[in-house]
Write a protein that binds this DNA or RNA. Structure first.
Lengths: 333, 333
DNA sequence: TACAGTCCTGTAAGCGCTCACAGTTTCCCC
DNA sequence: GGGGAAACTGTGAGCGCTTACAGGACTGTA
């Protein structure tokens, strides 16, 4: 359809200089006279020249692209705001660079092997990895590839060299301290999966706050972050600890499940039982009553991960980051 | 860090054949003897060879990548489920191919010019465009680039050659017919922005259903898809048409705004007024009462856009698609 | 005037792959 | 056994860019 785009050689010809000089102008290297530079810039503008990335990549051994890989067994996990927010943050920083962003959603075995291909074929200069579960194979793959890799979140078994994570523990602690400050004394928690760093951290935060205040840390039900597990956990808690006056759920989904069960059991929220969640997704605004929750700096995570990767690509040595969370007060406490 | 990856030439040497033959094996072209093929495959496996995409791109003039561009003035628009679902659908099809997915969120002027660069530098073989507003500059840019382009949604001013859209009109009509079947007679609507194809289509659907049933189509308030405009529209409707017994809102957000206003005015939902929204986002499940809504096949849109683009890249001539919506019945009707 | 040191510029050798072309071998049928 | 067609293989010329390297043109100093 369209005619072949102009090449660097054509620019050189038109500007009356050599290809080497044009290349220097494009990459604004030193040792180019103003005269040549102007001539080249004129020719570039007239021809509408844009360097061919493939050719440049081949010559420089750099791709000018990074990959954001999101890994999960459950495709539904993609379908939450977490996802969109991270990307928004990543994109914001990418826009300031000349890098291109490649996206890999590795839900299936197939997706995983595609990720490997991308790493092996050197289609990207670096990778940002959002491995949503422990011991994710993608993590090993990225490591083996030798490409600079920044992780979002940590796993329990090993801490990657470069990561950005939210302060799960601090966030949970703040949430529970808020409950204590509001006069609650019999505070329960529904934990997330304890074989994840996030699950552990939030549980730790709960215990710290509660123990520090001289309260019992024995009102515990274990969930898996899902709404159903929140409901189940709440039932157990009501059975075992009918005296509870507050619940800290390690995810909003679990908090929503808990709210349902509380309502069914005639408990008023927040009068009888206060509820706090974790993970401010839009959902939380529309619960009855509106849910107090710990907001994770998800977009900021995306931004910081990208900044960190860009620094790595520039040969700098950034340091990993733990970003603060924020307690969002609403009607449920 | 890692040593340079093996090249095709090294494979050829090890397999005792020429580079041409290796290339043929890789691209499984014809005219390769079983013997050669096996030797090459063995060498590839032993060396862990993966073709260098940049070199291949340069030689073939094909990039092996497509770009998904999402355009919007309002960065917040990215942060909804629509976004995540589309990508999930796109990814599902991409996974079946050897294509790589590049993502461009063109919120700013800067993002827009990056999109242009990508097109010009021929970094991608085709583009999927989700232009969220009318007369989007990206649309023109994609067109000018001559790259195969598939649009998600249509604009009013001109219908792109290849697009995938949801059946806004049919969906709205079905929703209103549902209200009629439930015995509602004084049915109002809060429209979306009427300078969008979606806004128009949903309004048309409302009118069709209502007129066909011999009812009045005069209970109309105009909104802009936002929650605030839904609330404002509902106020107007209650003032002008206190007899209304149902409302069809052209978006869930507006429906939520309407629900609030109805509650404030002592109207029971659905007893006094039934409410239907459009756009099944997670939000809709957690309203009080749960919102009946028209679900758009968003993930399917992503899938079909990608399929269409893949066909275009294969030189086929696909036909544009209008995907059916689905009425999700909940407590608000 | 001679000479070293700077700047600038052109030249050409790759980067790793594909693909037309030509050359060789094999196959099949008369 | 001969001939042509078909199957296979190697060769080498690009694809469009970067980047040593080798000069050439100046400049300033002795």
């Amino acid at each position: 359809m369209t005619t072949r785009p102009p090449t660097l050689e054509e620019v050189a010809q038109r500007a009356g200089v050599s290809t080497g000089t044009v290349s220097r102008v494009i990459n604004n290297a030193r040792h180019v006279s103003d005269k040549s530079r102007r001539a080249v810039e004129k020719a570039i503008a007239e021809l509408g020249y844009v360097p061919n990335t493939a050719a440049r990549s081949l010559a420089t051994q750099r791709r000018g692209a990074v990959v954001l890989a999101i890994s999960s067994d459950d495709p539904a996990l993609f379908a939450n705001l977490f996802f969109a927010e991270v990307i928004t943050g990543v994109n914001a920083v990418i826009e300031e660079t000349d890098l291109q962003l490649m996206l890999v959603l590795a839900a299936s075995e197939r997706g995983r092997s595609r990720f490997g291909k991308i790493l092996q074929s050197r289609s990207a200069d670096g990778v940002m990895l959002l491995a949503l579960k422990e011991n994710d194979p993608l993590s090993t793959m990225a490591e083996d590839s030798g490409l600079p890799t920044v992780h979002g979140g940590r796993s329990l078994d090993r801490t990657p060299q470069w990561y950005v994570d939210a302060d799960n523990r601090g966030g949970a602690r703040t949430a529970v301290e808020h409950l204590i400050a509001a006069g609650r004394r019999n505070i329960a928690t529904i934990t997330g999966e304890l074989d994840t760093h996030a699950g552990q951290g939030r549980y730790m935060g709960y215990r710290e706050a509660v123990v520090l205040a001289g309260l019992s840390d024995q009102r515990v039900a274990h969930g898996d972050f899902s709404e159903a597990s929140g409901a189940a956990g709440m039932k157990l808690l009501l059975d075992d600890h009918p005296d509870l006056d507050a619940v800290f759920a390690a995810s909003d989904a679990m908090a929503i499940g808990a709210l349902d069960v509380l309502r069914e059991n005639g408990k008023r929220v927040p009068e009888d039982v206060a509820v706090v969640g974790f993970n401010d997704v839009v959902t939380a605004r529309n619960t009855q009553p509106a849910l107090t929750t710990v907001r994770q700096p998800i977009e900021a995570m995306g931004r910081e991960m990208t900044r960190m990767l860009v620094r790595l690509l520039n040969g700098e040595q950034p340091t990993s980051l733990i970003l603060p969370t924020e307690l969002v007060l609403r009607a449920s406490t």
